[in-house]
Simulated scan of single mutants.
Amino acid sequence: MSERDGHPQAVVVTGPPGSGKSTLAALLARGLGAALLDLDTATADLTAVVVGLLGVEDLDDPVLARTTRAARYAAIAAVAEENLRLGLGVVLVAPFTAERRDPSAWAALAARLEAAGGRPSLVWLDIEPAAVEERLRRRAAARDVPRLARESGVSGLDLTAPRVPHIRADASQAPEALATAVLERVLGGSVREDVPSVS
């Protein structure tokens, strides 16, 4: 189920914190029989070392972002390429902020995934700011404390849709139903910039 036209899927799942990226990505990976590559899981231990060396507590700290972002994203992209070269589909999950904001950044990632044999698609979890805050408070993860404590709170997050072709997924829907609808779109190849909510 992970292939279309003989190419394994390379699904990139992005969205704001608390939007359900990891949950959706896991369901998509299961449905596709694909490898799940979660940025936080893959790089958490190394990021913790850097956080300790820099003496920062906020994962959104600009210094931390400048020193680790490129390496963290390169790591999961490289693992994705290895899997794709073996004919295995992949589902990558991370904020992918640069890739959704900058068409050239998305084009570069998509080109890497295509060169390894994959068929890339970007899935955007769309969610209202109030729902983001409620979910972050409910999950009560240590990484969210600095974000919620900032004066701007979740209003400082970029919740705008990607500026590149993508599948828009309504994060308020039940995860299983949403995953089924996204899988239909991914396997059907229907990806446009102005995609309505999947249902």
Rank of each mutant, 00 (worst) to 15 (best):
R101G: 04
L28K: 01
V79Y: 10
A116E: 03
D158T: 12
D60M: 01
T14K: 00
T68I: 12
L64G: 08
A181S: 05
A35K: 04
E128N: 02
A116Q: 06
D5K: 09
P165Y: 08
F96N: 06
T180Y: 01
G117Q: 04
L88M: 14
A42Y: 14
A161G: 10
V191A: 14
D58C: 03
V93M: 10
S155C: 05
R72C: 10
R66C: 07
P129A: 08
A34C: 00
P146D: 13
T97C: 07
A75M: 10
H7Y: 09
S2Y: 11
R147V: 09
E82F: 06
A116Y: 09
Q173R: 13
T41L: 13
A80E: 13
E3I: 03
A141E: 06
L86R: 15
T67H: 15
R138S: 14
V154C: 07
L136D: 03
A115I: 09
R192F: 08
G87F: 09
E3A: 08
H166D: 06
A35L: 01
A78Q: 14
S152N: 02
L36D: 01
L27M: 04
V164Q: 13
R185F: 02
A171C: 12
E3H: 11
A75I: 06
T180G: 02
A70C: 10
A74S: 12
R139L: 07
M1I: 03
P162T: 05
F96L: 12
P8F: 03
D170V: 06
D144L: 02
T41Q: 13
D144N: 02
L46S: 10
P165E: 11
E114P: 03
E99I: 01
A77F: 04
K21Y: 05
R168H: 12
R143T: 00
E57Y: 00
T97S: 15
D61Y: 07
L84V: 13
L125W: 10
W124G: 04
L39F: 14
G156N: 09
